[in-house]
Write a protein that binds this DNA or RNA. Sequence first.
DNA 1: CATGAATGAGAATTCATTCAT
DNA 2: TATGAATGAATTCTCATTCAT
Lengths: 195, 195, 195, 195
Amino acid sequence: MAPKSPEDFEKMRAESRSNILQSALKLFAEEGYDNTSISQIARDAGISKGLVYNYFDSKQELLEQVVHKGLKLMPEIFEASDRKIDSSTLPNMLERFRKSLKNDRLFWKFYAELLLQFLRNRELLQQFDMLFNEFIELFIECMRQQNVTNPEIEGRKLAAMLDGVSLHYMFDDDYPIDDIFDDIIKTYVPHASHE
Amino acid sequence: MAPKSPEDFEKMRAESRSNILQSALKLFAEEGYDNTSISQIARDAGISKGLVYNYFDSKQELLEQVVHKGLKLMPEIFEASDRKIDSSTLPNMLERFRKSLKNDRLFWKFYAELLLQFLRNRELLQQFDMLFNEFIELFIECMRQQNVTNPEIEGRKLAAMLDGVSLHYMFDDDYPIDDIFDDIIKTYVPHASHE
Amino acid sequence: MAPKSPEDFEKMRAESRSNILQSALKLFAEEGYDNTSISQIARDAGISKGLVYNYFDSKQELLEQVVHKGLKLMPEIFEASDRKIDSSTLPNMLERFRKSLKNDRLFWKFYAELLLQFLRNRELLQQFDMLFNEFIELFIECMRQQNVTNPEIEGRKLAAMLDGVSLHYMFDDDYPIDDIFDDIIKTYVPHASHE
Amino acid sequence: MAPKSPEDFEKMRAESRSNILQSALKLFAEEGYDNTSISQIARDAGISKGLVYNYFDSKQELLEQVVHKGLKLMPEIFEASDRKIDSSTLPNMLERFRKSLKNDRLFWKFYAELLLQFLRNRELLQQFDMLFNEFIELFIECMRQQNVTNPEIEGRKLAAMLDGVSLHYMFDDDYPIDDIFDDIIKTYVPHASHE
DNA sequence: CATGAATGAGAATTCATTCAT
DNA sequence: TATGAATGAATTCTCATTCAT
């Protein structure tokens, strides 16, 4: 009844949009992109099918937006807040990653799915590539900090290992994720414990 | 006049079947399972749509057969021929793996795709799970051979790293795959360096 | 501007659903279940193929719904309105049946078709079986009313004869349906003649 | 090895043909015409799919031949061997029919299926119509023999009842077929009892 | 802004029929 | 005569997308 202000509308739009993205992320992660229909997403978001198209031009664009939103979470996990890399950066990052893996299994399943989509889809690949390289660069930088002999190689190995561990963890409910992380942290951050 | 002999038929069948599996592997790997239609597979194999169903009951079964065939390659890559694990097993395996990654990129792309399919599909998961665990066990056994402190953890880390490296390599055409492998071999096979 | 109200949608749905059932009944009856494609039904109903699946999960379910709707007509034909069986029940029923046979030839053709489907399809058989037995029981009850020596047998004979007459009538455009019915009524309702 | 004489070939042909017809009858009766594939028939007959087309031009023609062969059995059941109709014709016929119903349930199921096919298929209808009318005429003639008041009507009623009883019997494994037949025979052949 | 009915292109699957041998 | 591989048209069913209200 009360006439809504432009701001109200704006807020509603943002909220609806966010709901849709939320539902899409969940369903894409659980069922896979191809096995998720717009109807399901709409139903899950509690809105009508048609309305989805009010916010996103196509299913493909919805995917891209979900990815976009998802990738923005990555830096929060991996980047040190002060952007300065020091000896605590890597252990902090690893801890945050471990925590995220355990808490946001859904997101990481989706991330795994995306890896595959990316291998095929040029549009998505570009969005992702930059971030992906930043992420590797970050590890390389950490290695450099630690004065390892070959930071480029060591950084890539660490990145690969973490991706591999994530995959295996998603596969196997009994995966000893904590043991593995404890060990990785110990290995890659040896200075942390003694001297 | 002369009716075809059973051998003739057998040969035809084997050939067609093999063609179909070949095309299916290629397309599943390149486009993904869901984005590949039976029509495409048939077209690629140079046969009619209907014939595919002469050899495979369903698209799902075709996938399973492709997987089955693919998984048979794994042991050749990872297992020591004499089944005895000694100090040369791991370097041999790693070399074979490196070579396979570079030669059979298609297969490994597909393998990556499968990881995701597996996360959802119970049928496939079972076929795969055993092999997957064997593969991890193998690395653990190698670690045990080398008297590392914690073979269980070290084996899993190595397995994860190799999966991660494979993924990254598939992503990035400039990935320094040889440097990484050289390093891994050097790290995990320290004895190799000093004679 | 104004969104459609739930009532509007409800009305649209009911109408479309009814159209589809109508067309399906007609075509199943005329062509047989197996010889009728969803496309034909859609075309006949003046809608798109896909819409049929908006209302019915499968062709099989469409059949079941058509049957369900059709079977609801049966009681109107065969049951005495007051549920009490007396000497007028049978002649009334026979008259209603005669009238229905002549008016609803389509339905009865379909009913005949169904008999055959039923011989194979367990799902449908159950829906039908109850009604079928009720129908025979009804005749038996009428016979009992008339104090015939062996009402069980006589009831079944009458039921069989009516099914047979229906079939023959559907076959033969010159079938003397009225003569037959007049005779049956005279035979089975002897009291009608002498008061 | 021994060169086959033309007669041998002829006999083999006849035998193969008969096998196919046998299998087709069985499968059509059990599964229905539409649900039976040529492959099934060939498999059941122990020959190749292609060979079926050596004997029959099409599935439709195979159906027609099965019908043709089947209908030839009818006279054996219904006609008095000496073609003369007397007071024993009807009871004999009814006994033969009862026996056939119980022994050849498969055939009668198929006959029921055919009734429906006939209602749609002009080709088949013609083959059948003649026989169908002969069959009714036969009953009418029997009634005439018995000096019933209205042989035309009574004959048709008997024919209808027998068709109906057959259907019901096929439906219901507990159908009291013998009681019904005993009663029919007693009713329609009253003279049989008192001399 | 919101709804869900309606569309239609495309996918998997079946199967009668053909054909080379 | 006999085989079964191969074809392709037809069928059921799904779902992204449009549109009238």
